[in-house]
Design a protein around this nucleic acid. Structure first.
Length: 408
DNA sequence: CGGCAGGACTCCACCACATTTTAGA
DNA sequence: GATCTAAAATGTGGTGGAGTCCTGC
């Protein structure tokens, strides 16, 4: 990954596709992700303009720079320089093949940035991709839902003490933007999202929350020991407290209700709960993108987890609406988002051996991510017709067509 | 306890062909 | 050494089959 588009190798890379693990210019982004319905579901976001390698999650208004979580942290951690008071916007992601105008609606600053804006306008304007064929994201009214966009929202005057909340929540849905002084996202509906650390009571009273509090969903979590940090790399340490089961509150890692109460999260005061959330949006099929790589699955769960850290759930944002949004790498790389469990929650229901067994079982069955070296080859293979899984010659009869909508 | 059957699971070859790498002129 | 051309190698994903592991009898 780098400064240059990994597809054409000519233009400056602007967006980052997690599913492809690729940095692309806008032209190639549209080119690659218009190839088929599946690739259109890949979530993309801007690239960090500082490290040029990580997906940006925040845009600093003062510096006019999109930053990944690490760079945001390093760049704005210093309160002495005043950078910590910089006004930042939480960046989110998009799917589908939005036009330049639509992108500028999502990220209004795009066209303000001469380096990005010019490229955006020129390249997008000169595209030759024919994108007229129907997308499965379109509903019956012809409204295109495939451009599943969580727009940027402002995060005002955050100080360092609140940073932990921001890191976790910058891409999370908002449920009361008045409460958090959040501007309505430009060109977006209620999907705009930022969730503060307060106002849980409001959420509980919000009838829209009902859709988000769901148990027993079909959610497969891989590598949960990686997700939850080092403590799961050394399960015995955790198991010695015989609290793993109570911690996870589940019988099976898949499709379970992960709940835990009584653990201090970041501030050591709030109870929190992890509820897996069923993807209910029209773009639920984008779960393939979500699960297409280890990172994405981690991101997904992290997102659900962060939903709960501040004890908020629900709103009009379903899980699917924001499942493609970015998430703080701090959550993934840093300390696990919990402190050592209180003694009062030590489980008496299940044994350590069961927990160990499940851990080993899951570790045994986990799959390691396959890294795609050439995005272009993947894109081609994705659309290639097959017979019993094997590629066939062009024109031969086929039994599997990844592009059922093509008309020839 | 060993042997066997059956199910569950994992691993890998196969295919076409655009792209990339390598060798030679 | 630089450039061009041709040949060879590479890599991509879904499927089926072979092999392995586990469980119950």
């Amino acid at each position: 990954m780098g400064y240059i588009c990994e597809y054409c190798g000519e233009q400056r890379s602007i967006v980052y596709c997690r599913s492809d693990a690729a940095c692309l210019c806008l032209s190639c982004d549209r080119n690659v992700h218009s190839a088929n319905a599946l690739s259109q579901r890949h979530s993309r976001t801007l690239i960090c303009e500082r490290c040029n390698s990580q997906p940006a999650v925040v845009r600093c208004v003062e510096e006019r720079t999109s930053l990944c979580q690490n760079c945001d942290w390093s760049g704005h951690a210093s309160s002495s320089s005043g950078s910590s008071m910089h006004k930042r916007q939480a960046l989110s992601c998009y799917t589908g093949c939005p036009s330049a105008a639509e992108l500028s609606n999502i990220w209004s600053f795009l066209l303000d940035d001469p380096s990005i804006g010019d490229t955006c306008e020129q390249r997008m304007g000169s595209m030759s991709i024919n994108d007229n064929r129907p997308r499965d994201g379109q509903d019956t009214q012809g409204k295109d839902n495939s451009q599943n966009v969580c727009a940027a929202v402002e995060v005002n005057d955050m100080n360092i003490s609140e940073k932990s909340n921001l890191l976790v929540e910058s891409s999370m849905p908002t449920f009361d933007n008045k409460l958090h002084n959040v501007e309505p996202p430009i060109g977006s509906s209620s999907k705009g999202c930022y969730m503060g650390a307060k106002g849980s009571s409001l959420i509980e009273e919000d009838p829209y929350c009902d859709n988000l509090i769901m148990d027993a969903v079909d959610l497969s979590i891989e590598n949960y020991e990686e997700l939850f940090g080092d403590s799961l790399n050394y399960p015995d340490e955790l198991f010695e407290n015989e609290n793993l089961d109570s911690f996870f509150g589940m019988k099976d890692i898949k499709g379970a209700d992960y709940s835990y109460r009584g653990v201090n999260a970041a501030e050591g005061s709030s109870n929190w709960r992890v509820n897996t959330v069923q993807p209910t949006c029209s773009d639920a099929a984008s779960a393939d993108s979500m699960m297409s790589c280890k990172t994405d699955s981690i991101l997904y769960f992290a997102r659900q987890s962060s939903l709960s850290v501040s004890n908020q759930t629900g709103g009009e944002c379903s899980a699917g609406d924001h499942q493609d949004c970015g998430v703080s790498p701090m959550l993934l790389m840093g300390e696990p988002p919990w402190c050592p469990p209180c003694t009062e929650i030590s489980s008496t229901s299940t044994s350590r051996s069961n927990a160990v067994l499940r851990y080993k079982e899951k570790k045994k069955t986990r799959k390691f991510d396959k890294r795609v070296r050439y995005v272009s080859r993947k894109a081609r293979a994705d659309v290639r017709r097959r017979v019993k899984g094997r590629f066939i010659k062009a024109g031969d009869a086929y039994d599997y067509d990844p592009l059922p909508t093509r008309s020839y």
